[in-house]
């Protein structure tokens, strides 16, 4: 009972972090939300998988957040005003979050009926993350936000997939995939942003 209640608390954490991810445009808020999502994913994964597998997910996730954060920190800040109208506006994001929450509430019992034994909280958490990832992906073309969206989507998928597939190899490969995606994100953020050796030599001349 207490475990169930805690699982639902994690679902609420996912909802809050999804909101922060969609509404907050600052990269620090986005990465903070991602870190929170990994904490919730850790708990929901351990409902069906051993503690070690869940903690591997948590550690990998936080490593990715750290890598992306350190990369972004090394880049110059850009001042972007929050638009008041259109897909980038705060109100639009809040409406989208509401739609995601409604769809999740509607779909969760139906999925539980099709695949019994997953657990309502696990399905709800997974669906919330998948929907947030997809919606976020549709709203942005900025590299950091695209990578965060993909990581969110995969985290949601992993929560549900962990309930049906308990292979350690899959857990390991998924962790590597997440880590790879984080590193690809860091690489793409850095690509073209730092002067090459030749540029520096030209400047000195």
């Amino acid at each position: 009972m207490l475990i169930d209640a805690f699982s639902w608390l994690m679902v609420i954490l996912i909802l809050i972090s999804s909101g922060a991810m969609l509404i907050g445009k600052d990269w620090r808020i986005q990465l903070g939300a991602l870190a929170m999502q990994y904490l919730a994913a850790f708990w929901l994964i351990t409902r069906h998988q051993p503690f070690v597998v869940g903690s591997a997910k948590l550690v990998t996730g936080w490593m990715i957040v750290a890598a992306l954060g350190m990369t972004r920190l090394s880049l110059p800040e850009t001042d972007e005003d929050q638009p008041t109208f259109g897909p980038e506006s705060r109100w639009f994001s809040m409406v989208l979050l509401g739609i995601i929450a409604l769809i999740t509430a509607g779909a969760t019992p139906r999925i539980e009926a099709v695949i019994p034994g997953l657990g309502l909280s696990v399905i709800a958490g997974g669906l919330l993350l998948i929907s947030t990832g997809l919606i976020h992906l549709g709203l942005t073309s900025e590299i950091l936000r695209v990578i965060i969206s993909l990581l969110t989507l995969i985290a949601g998928f992993e929560i549900i997939y962990a309930a049906v597939e308990n292979s350690i190899l899959v857990a390991g490969l998924l962790a590597l995939t997440n880590l790879g995606l984080g590193l690809v994100g860091s690489y793409l953020l850095l690509a073209g942003s730092t002067p090459t050796v030749t540029d520096l030599e030209e400047d000195m001349e």
């Binding site: 590299i143 993909l150 998928f157 995939t177 690509a191 090459t196």
Partner: peptide, 25 residues
């Protein structure tokens, strides 16, 4: 490393990543 990533590479990584959950599930 010296070139800014453009739309093509971003779309490539998005599409390849979206494929994986669909196939596994």
């Amino acid at each position: 490393p010296y070139q800014k990533p453009k739309r093509g590479v971003i779309r490539f990584i998005i599409y390849q990543t979206l494929a994986m959950p669909f196939i596994l599930f």
